[in-house]
Structure formats: structure tokens, C-alpha cells
């Protein structure tokens, strides 16, 4: 699964760059555009992004509810976005409810387990922020 996610991220970025491999023509004149395409992300950064995404997924806390995060949340965004946040149960319920309203594939009966997982592992805390 880790390899699959990493590959998907890398391919997505690469394909974005390839979209500009086509001829660029004005829709009105049909002439080739003189505007150069935007440079694609550097390969080193693309690899680092994919590796960081895989590492974040692998480091999700082990426990009941993790499988819901893996099957629903990380469809749209990296697990890193979850791991760096800290919220109480009301905060996570609000977030999870918003995501579900926007189409995240979470069943209503899964919500207590999801919110419980997030609150237990990514709950309210004081972050150690070194100077």
C-alpha cells in the first residue's frame, strides 16, 4: 500500500507536467502559443513528497479506527495533515462531519470510531516547540 500511494503521488505530479508536452495553441487562432509551459516540480522534490506521504501513512497511530483513516481520509490528503493537528472530540467531530458532508466515504456508524481514534491519538496537547 505504501508503494502504491507513493507511486500514485509521483505519477500525478509527473502527468501534470506532461500535460504541457502538447502543443499550446490559441483556441481562437489555432496558432501555436509563444508562452512557454510552466516548469514541472523538480524530480528530487517529487521524490521527497512521495516519500514523506508514505512515511506519514506508515506512522499513523496503531489502534481501532486507523483503518477508517486509511480508507477515507487519505484519499484526498496526506496523513501528515492529521498527525500535526490536535483537537478535542468536539473539534474532531466538527472536522470529520465537514469532511463527510463534502463526500468523504465514511458511514455514519463509523463516525464514533473515527472520532474516537482521532481524539485518542491526536487530541488536545501542548506541543513542544523548541525556541
Amino acid at each position: 500500500m505504501r508503494f502504491g500511494l507513493e507511486t500514485a503521488v509521483a505519477c500525478g505530479i509527473i502527468l501534470s507536467g506532461l500535460a504541457f508536452g502538447c502543443r499550446s495553441e490559441s483556441p481562437e487562432t489555432g496558432r501555436r502559443s509563444s508562452t512557454p509551459p510552466p516548469p514541472a516540480p523538480p524530480a528530487a522534490l517529487t521524490r521527497a513528497i512521495a516519500a514523506a506521504d508514505s512515511a506519514a501513512l506508515a506512522s499513523l497511530a496503531v489502534g481501532p479506527g486507523r483503518e477508517i483513516v486509511e480508507g477515507s481520509c487519505v484519499i484526498c490528503h496526506s496523513a501528515a495533515l492529521i498527525e500535526q493537528q490536535h483537537k478535542g472530540s468536539a473539534g474532531w467531530a466538527k472536522t470529520a462531519g465537514q469532511m463527510r458532508a463534502w463526500g468523504a466515504p465514511v458511514q455514519q456508524e463509523q463516525m464514533p470510531a473515527l472520532i474516537g481514534y482521532l481524539t485518542k491519538h491526536y487530541g488536545v496537547t501542548l506541543q513542544p516547540t523548541p525556541p
Binding site: 503521488v9 523538480p42 528530487a44 522534490l45 521527497a48 513528497i49 512521495a50 516519500a51 514523506a52 506521504d53 506519514a56 506512522s59 499513523l60 497511530a61 496503531v62 490528503h77 496526506s78 496523513a79 501528515a80 495533515l81 492529521i82 498527525e83 500535526q84 485518542k120 491519538h121 491526536y122 487530541g123 496537547t125 506541543q127 513542544p128 516547540t129 523548541p130
Partner: peptide, 23 residues
């Protein structure tokens, strides 16, 4: 991450930025 707390550990690798969220 890792059991609920940000380790806030920065590891160097090539590229030029500090990645907080890869996707």
C-alpha cells in the same frame, strides 16, 4: 506523528523546502 504527538524532528534530504504536508 507516531502515537499522537508531533516529533517535530527535521531530517535533511534534497529539494529545498521543509515539507509540513506532502499532499
Amino acid at each position: 506523528g507516531g502515537q499522537g504527538g508531533p516529533a517535530a524532528r527535521e531530517a535533511p534530504s534534497p529539494g529545498g523546502l521543509v515539507i509540513h504536508n506532502p499532499r
